[in-house]
Computed example of a mutant assay.
Amino acid sequence: MSDKIVLVTGATGRIGRVVVSDLLQRGYHVRAVTSKSPPSEGVQRLEWRQADLARNDDLLPLVDGCDAVIHLAAEIGKKSRMRALNEDATERLAKAAQDARVGAFCYTSSVSVYGSGRSIEISEASPVLSIDEDNASEYWALDYVREYGRTKLAGERAISRVADQMRCIIFRPAVVVDLDQIIGIRDWSLVKRMLASHRHAHHIYVWDVSDALIWSVEQALAGRGTPGDVEIFNLAEDDRPQPRHIDFMRKAFRASGDPHYRVVSAPSAVDWLHDFLRFRTLPLRNPLWRMRFSSRRLRDAGYRLKFGMAQAEELALSRLADQAKAGAQTKAVPQNNTV
């Protein structure tokens, strides 16, 4: 059992819940931070702290005594809070961790920092968004999504400014999904299912994200890399077979018989036109679904995905088949009608 203490921010979020569980299963002590009311149940080796990182100026008490930090907390919806949490709080947390002599600081950024790439193939060396101004031509997206990408990139730069003796790792994950998100494509509107069906999903399984984050922390605590260095990795599985939404929907229909998974796939040209009418701009760049995010640098560093989307989809298909079977059995049970 490890005596290491890992601070996890955003501990009640989609990734955070898995990271906390993963760390506990591996024997770590976890100091979990959330801006919401923390769970009341007691779990051995788990300490909850409630804090709004965007408003709390003194973050040293959060990191004091910790060996590593996995910083997941982010604002993804409220544009007015993005700069305060995604950049300013990230810098203050990294500075506090540096002052507390934390050995490893791991930050989850996003592939949104690349915006709409000029090239289809995207590596960590590819051009990124402008930080200081919102240039709509750089990113074919809604304004709050552009702001998210810019502020996550600003958080990366803040860590680079702070890093001195602390080993820092930045991950840029693609679209992080759990089983509910994989299955949940059936809940999209019919138009969205038709338009998006041809798209490359860019999905990365949340348990793989957790495994990669913990792997990087363990590598840093073991002495990998130079103190003060900041390593940046894409985290994606864009080279897997059958990565499109329609590929999963076809398998899901066979497994469940749910008609929501049976759609007519719209041509990509229709998708282009829809986005042009939506954003009223035609940048000489690629929308997200055309881009491909390379994880070669992470593989070269020695990491391999623990699960992979093939296994995640099999779990999702198994759940769908079980749901379909349970539904059929419920319909087959005779009803007792009384007058």
Rank of each mutant, 00 (worst) to 15 (best):
V264H: 09
V264R: 09
V264N: 04
S265Q: 07
S265N: 03
A266N: 01
A266H: 06
A266L: 12
A266Y: 09
P267F: 08
P267A: 05
P267M: 02
P267I: 08
S268K: 14
S268L: 13
S268R: 14
A269G: 05
A269P: 06
V270I: 10
V270K: 06
V270S: 09
D271S: 15
D271G: 15
W272V: 13
W272L: 08
W272Q: 13
W272E: 13
W272D: 15
W272G: 04
W272P: 02
W272H: 15
L273T: 13
L273D: 09
L273E: 09
L273C: 08
H274G: 10
H274L: 09
H274Y: 14
H274S: 13
H274W: 15
D275F: 13
F276E: 06
F276T: 11
F276I: 12
F276A: 12
F276Q: 11
F276Y: 14
F276C: 13
L277T: 03
L277E: 01
L277W: 05
L277R: 10
R278A: 06
R278H: 08
F279V: 10
F279I: 03
F279G: 09
F279W: 14
F279N: 08
R280I: 02
T281P: 11
T281W: 12
T281V: 15
T281Q: 15
L282V: 15
L282G: 13
L282I: 15
P283F: 04
P283A: 11
L284H: 14
L284D: 10
L284N: 10
R285C: 02
R285V: 04
R285K: 12
R285D: 02
R285S: 08
N286F: 01
N286G: 04
N286H: 15
P287S: 13
P287H: 09
P287M: 05
P287R: 12
P287E: 07
P287I: 11
P287F: 02
P287V: 13
L288E: 07
L288D: 10
L288K: 08
L288S: 13
W289I: 08
W289T: 13
W289E: 10
R290A: 11
R290S: 06
R290M: 00
M291V: 06
R292N: 04
R292Y: 02
R292F: 06
R292L: 07
R292C: 09
R292W: 04
F293K: 00
S294F: 03
S294A: 08
S294W: 05
S294K: 07
S294L: 10
S295L: 07
S295Y: 07
S295N: 04
S295I: 01
S295C: 10
S295T: 10
S295D: 10
R296F: 00
R296M: 00
R297K: 13
R297W: 02
R297Y: 04
R297A: 09
L298S: 03
L298E: 03
L298D: 01
L298V: 02
L298F: 05
R299N: 07
D300I: 00
D300Q: 05
D300K: 02
D300P: 01
A301S: 03
A301D: 01
A301H: 03
A301T: 05
G302D: 00
Y303W: 08
Y303M: 00
Y303A: 06
Y303F: 12
R304I: 00
R304K: 03
L305D: 02
L305I: 04
